[in-house]
Design a protein around this nucleic acid. Sequence first.
DNA 1: TGGAACTACATCGAAGGCCGAGGTAGTGAT
DNA 2: ATCACTACCTCGGCCTTCGATGTAGTTCCA
Lengths: 112, 112
Amino acid sequence: MGSQSREARPQNDLLVLAVLAEGPAHGYAIAQEINRRTDGLLRMKEGTLYPLLHSLERQRLVRATWRESERGPARRTYHLTAKGKRALSDRTAKWQRFSRAVDAVVRGEARA
Amino acid sequence: MGSQSREARPQNDLLVLAVLAEGPAHGYAIAQEINRRTDGLLRMKEGTLYPLLHSLERQRLVRATWRESERGPARRTYHLTAKGKRALSDRTAKWQRFSRAVDAVVRGEARA
DNA sequence: TGGAACTACATCGAAGGCCGAGGTAGTGAT
DNA sequence: ATCACTACCTCGGCCTTCGATGTAGTTCCA
C-alpha cells in the first residue's frame, strides 16, 4: 500500500527472515516450518520461495552455503546476516503497524 | 499465499468493504476515511481505488448511484449489498486467520 | 524391478495487483 | 490567473505470486 518501496516483498520475506532468525535452514525446511507454525494455513510455494531466497541473498540479508549430504540431494543452507537481522526487526515493526492499521479500519475505529 | 483464489485482492477490498459497512460513501471519501482511521499509514491511491470499486461492483458486492451535487463535481455513491455484507464477514475472518498466522511465524511459535 | 512418495533444488510464463502519471472538471481562495 | 482541493477516471509498466515443469537422490513396499 502506501509507503512500501518497490523492492520489498509484502510479508513473505518477513516470514522467511523470521524462520531463519532461529538458526540456519535450507529452503525446503523453511517452507515446512512456515507450514507447521501456521497449521497449514500459509504454504510458501517453490515458485515463490526460491526466487525470494535468491533475492534476499542479493540484498545481503541472508548468506548461503552449499552442503552436500550423504542422505538426499545437496542442500543450500541459509543463515541471517547482521543486515538481515536488522531487516527482520524493521519488517516486524512494519508488519505490526500495518496489521494494527487494518484492524482499526475493520473495527471502524479511528487511529491504529 | 496458500489458498487465496486468484481473483481476490489481498486486503484492499476488505478495507473498502469495512468502510462501506458503516454507511454509503463515495470513492474519495472512502480513501479519506481509510487514511484517517490509520493515521495516514494506509493511503489508498486512486489508481488502486477506482479499479477496485469497479471490480467490487462487477462482483455485486457494492452498488453505486450517481448523485449530482451543487457544490463540486458529481459523486458516485457506493453502498454494500447483502452479498457484500457476507463478503465482508468472510474476508474479515480470513484476514484474522492470516494475521494470526503471520504473527505465529514471527514469534517463532507453533500453531496460530 | 518398478514405482510411488518424499526430499530438495530450480526456472519459466501467465495472471493479476498496485500505483505513478496523466487527464477532465468544478469550486473557492489569493 | 493560479493554486489547491474535491472528485472522477484510465493506462502502462513494474512486481509478486504460483502453477507447471524439470532434475535428481532416497526410501519403502510389493
